[in-house]
């Protein structure tokens, strides 16, 4: 762990980082938390997302035994800045709740302008790693990846470095136009499943009503090549 952490810290220090002390070391309640960008310029995680990452750490830091952790994420970003997916590449935390919480925070963020320049040239001060054009899920990876300025969180005496690499991906619509029938065929079984389980789970009713809008979710699936599980959660396992 020490070796990987050291490497991650080295990466963070090499690039500069967003420093966000929290808990005992943070400022008084109501004041803006001390948060600043380090020396390395370049795209960074939006402030609102950093706050969400902090909240994830705050809620779970008490369960951690160590004092220093690193977690590395890969996020797929559309040209529009919409994050299509966030996945943990490597984590030293080992606490699923914190990890899942952070994953969701990153998935909800928007990174406009971060990946567009990749088509032509890399922005200055941005670390690029080579990535051949290849498939990542239902999207197409377009080119090199961009490492965002790492986020350093200090919560309840625990330091967590969050490293995020953004991968530019093609808007799925173009890919879908090339294979509309096949995508539909992937979506039909999910529509069928939705129609047979039309009630929203209790935890989703406040936001989406009592019933799933299966047709709307199917349309989303065909257009985006992914079933919107937030709007139409799939049923669970039914052991025989």
């Amino acid at each position: 762990m020490a070796t990987r952490l050291t490497a991650s810290l080295g990466l963070a220090l090499g690039l500069g980082f967003v420093f966000t002390p929290f808990g005992c070391g943070s400022g008084p309640i109501g004041n803006p938390r001390p948060s600043h960008h380090g020396s390395g310029d370049g795209p960074s995680v939006p402030a609102a997302t950093v706050s969400e990452l902090e909240a994830c750490a705050e809620h779970g830091a008490g369960r951690l035994k160590g004092t220093h952790y690193a977690i590395i994420f890969d996020v797929d970003v559309m040209e529009s800045g919409e994050v299509r997916a966030a996945k943990i590449r490597e984590s030293e935390i080992g606490d699923r709740e914190i990890e899942t919480c952070m994953e969701h925070a990153l998935q909800a963020m928007s990174l406009p302008g971060v990946v567009t320049p990749l088509r032509s040239s890399a922005p200055e001060g941005v670390m690029l790693s080579p990535h051949a054009r290849g498939a990542m899920g239902n999207v197409v990876v377009l080119g090199p990846a961009v490492s965002l300025v790492p986020v350093l969180i200090v919560a309840a005496g625990v330091t967590i470095i969050v490293v995020v690499t953004a991968h530019a991906v093609e808007e799925t619509a173009e890919a879908i136009r090339r294979r509309p029938r096949k995508v539909e065929k992937l979506c039909y079984p999910l529509l069928e499943e939705c129609l047979e389980n039309p009630w929203q789970p209790e935890w989703n009713r406040r936001k989406f009503g009592n019933y799933k809008q299966c047709e709307a979710c199917f349309d989303h699936c065909v257009k985006k090549a992914v079933w919107p599980e937030d709007k139409c959660p799939r049923p669970g396992s039914r052991p025989k």
Partner: peptide, 28 residues
């Protein structure tokens, strides 16, 4: 109880993207 199987004790956090965190059993 795990909402997914309605059978085992729910001990593991799980959430759909964009949805609240829930608890399921390890098997589910």
């Amino acid at each position: 109880i795990c909402w997914s199987c309605n059978e085992n004790e729910a001990t593991e956090p799980f959430a759909y993207p964009g949805a609240p965190l829930t608890l399921v059993c390890a098997r589910c």
